[in-house]
Design a protein around this nucleic acid. Sequence first.
DNA 1: GTCTATATACAGATAGAC
DNA 2: GTCTATCTGTATATAGAC
Lengths: 180, 180
Amino acid sequence: MSRPPRAKESVLDAFEAALIDGGARGATMDAVAAAAGVSKGGLLYHYASKDALESALLERMRRLVDIDVEDMLRSPEGVVAAFVRTSVQTGSALDRAIIAASRLAQAGHTGASAALREVRDVWEAALRPHTRDETALQLVLLVSDGLYFNSALATGALPGPIPHGAELDALIALVERAAR
Amino acid sequence: MSRPPRAKESVLDAFEAALIDGGARGATMDAVAAAAGVSKGGLLYHYASKDALESALLERMRRLVDIDVEDMLRSPEGVVAAFVRTSVQTGSALDRAIIAASRLAQAGHTGASAALREVRDVWEAALRPHTRDETALQLVLLVSDGLYFNSALATGALPGPIPHGAELDALIALVERAAR
DNA sequence: GTCTATATACAGATAGAC
DNA sequence: GTCTATCTGTATATAGAC
């Protein structure tokens, strides 16, 4: 398991991508197989069921969030600023996993809801020492949730109202002022 | 259209409820018909297709948001405080419509994404005169988005980390201090 | 206006060839 | 390890009786 087959990883990538830009409805086994360049039978060799595919995605997300938190804690910009900033970088592997998991959660997948809640708890624990009090902590988390919500709702064409560049810097400064 | 048939409204209510507590996957025509106490044929008399049912839900949401904004502007607590507070009252008709629409949006329904974006634009315009600058405006909107995100992810059993009572009051106070 | 019965399509999953 | 072919269940939608 230390180095999974390339094909298996690319199937998971295709599933994630299908969720992100087509929603749970479009992430069918057929679509995933086609995007990954394998047949439906080939896909089912690597992942015996759709549930197995979903579990693999959630496990990937859990693994990535630990790395993310380590990076966050070492950021020269400060933990809160790094946290808000990464909440808007929707291109990272973690962000993609989170958005895909959100799609599953809202399609009714309770395991995805629970996994997302766990991710939030990990962040909450990491941020707590760097915020003034619980209210400030919740403010920071909610801003991040809001950024993810807008990323999650932006299906394909529609660009969400997500701040960038100077706007993002101003937002981070405001959140930091309020939170510590 | 000024007073739609009771059965038609209850079908729409059932669809909304099915989306909220089962996700888009569980909101099938069969499930909605059963919950509304009509047969599938009866449902299809009122709404000729699933798409018609979805459109009706989005139209209901658009209608309710206008009423919500009027109430918000008249609130003695202040517009910002009223806005954040109503973002957490997930029992209201508007909140239920928004959460149901979020489920559709993340299932891949682009019309729902667009409608939710419109709702956010309406709020943004209403709040702009009551915030210090654009950054503060975005902060308020993102906190609200975050609250909705957590409500939207809380499927059935799992209670989301949504502040209540004194916690909510403290959060509102903090947001107001930061925003104006 | 509401029902039953049915048509059509497609999802997830299995079997077995190569 | 990957393919084709096929089975089974279920979702949307239609037809037509009452």
